[in-house]
Design a protein around this nucleic acid. Structure first.
Length: 205
DNA sequence: CCTACGATTCACT
DNA sequence: GTGAATCGTAGGC
């Protein structure tokens, strides 16, 4: 999978892109991690999406081109990293929920003093953001520009894609949609265990 | 203007 | 399992 192919998938369909983004690397300086869990959000038909009720100052980049960092602050505590999808005007994004740390673990541990094991570093969107120093300052960054300090690089394609319902959404916000994408061979690194409704994407395809 | 609450994490019972 | 932390934003008045 090349950088161009990932971008193409992002531009085409956020749901397809969910499985394509798995396996790609998130990089910042010496820190590198392999993305193992994402969730798709779109707009008109997705009540759980920040873009559902139209364009605002916060969600602005979701309406822009694909491959851009949409970063927002939640619960007054945590930053969350998303990768935008779809062409200009059609809002969508993938929330990066978990990753497997590959390099620069010492720096990640330094940013997350409470973490005891490598599994505690990136196993959740808030954890991942703090381990990578992701804040509002990264809002709008082009993640597919090799010159960007924070960026996404191609990795090995994930073949065992598991689909599940999204996490943390209130009732009526699309909590039943199977738009959570997980690397089935990397369950050790994900944010939460799979639900009873999880299924292998290949089987159901 | 004012209030409720969220795409979460962590400590504690 | 439950609740606190902590604040920008959306949505209602």
């Amino acid at each position: 999978m090349t950088r161009k192919q990932i971008l193409k998938a992002l531009e085409t369909d956020v749901l397809h892109a969910g499985s394509v983004l798995l396996g790609a690397h998130l990089v910042r300086g010496a820190r590198r991690a392999r993305i193992v869990e994402v969730e798709a959000y779109r707009a008109e038909d997705d009540a759980g999406s920040h873009a559902h009720r139209g364009r605002t100052k916060r969600n602005d980049v979701m309406f822009g081109r694909a491959g851009i960092a949409y970063v927002y602050f939640n619960y007054g505590v945590h930053w969350m990293l998303n990768v935008t999808a779809h062409p200009e005007g059609r809002a969508a994004a993938l929330l990066v929920r978990a990753a497997e740390p590959l390099e620069g673990l010492d720096e990640m541990f330094a940013r997350r003093p409470r973490a005891k094991r490598p599994e505690d570093l990136l196993s959740g969107p808030g954890k991942l953001a703090s381990a990578f120093d992701i804040t509002g300052g990264d809002y709008g960054v082009d993640l597919f520009d090799p010159k960007s300090e924070l960026r996404v690089e191609p990795g090995k394609t994930v073949t065992n894609v598991v689909r599940d319902v999204r996490i943390g959404l209130a009732k009526g916000r699309g909590e039943e949609l199977p738009w959570r994408f997980v690397d089935g061979d990397a369950l050790r690194w994900i944010s939460k265990g799979l639900s009873a409704s999880a299924f292998s994407q290949e089987e159901r395809a």
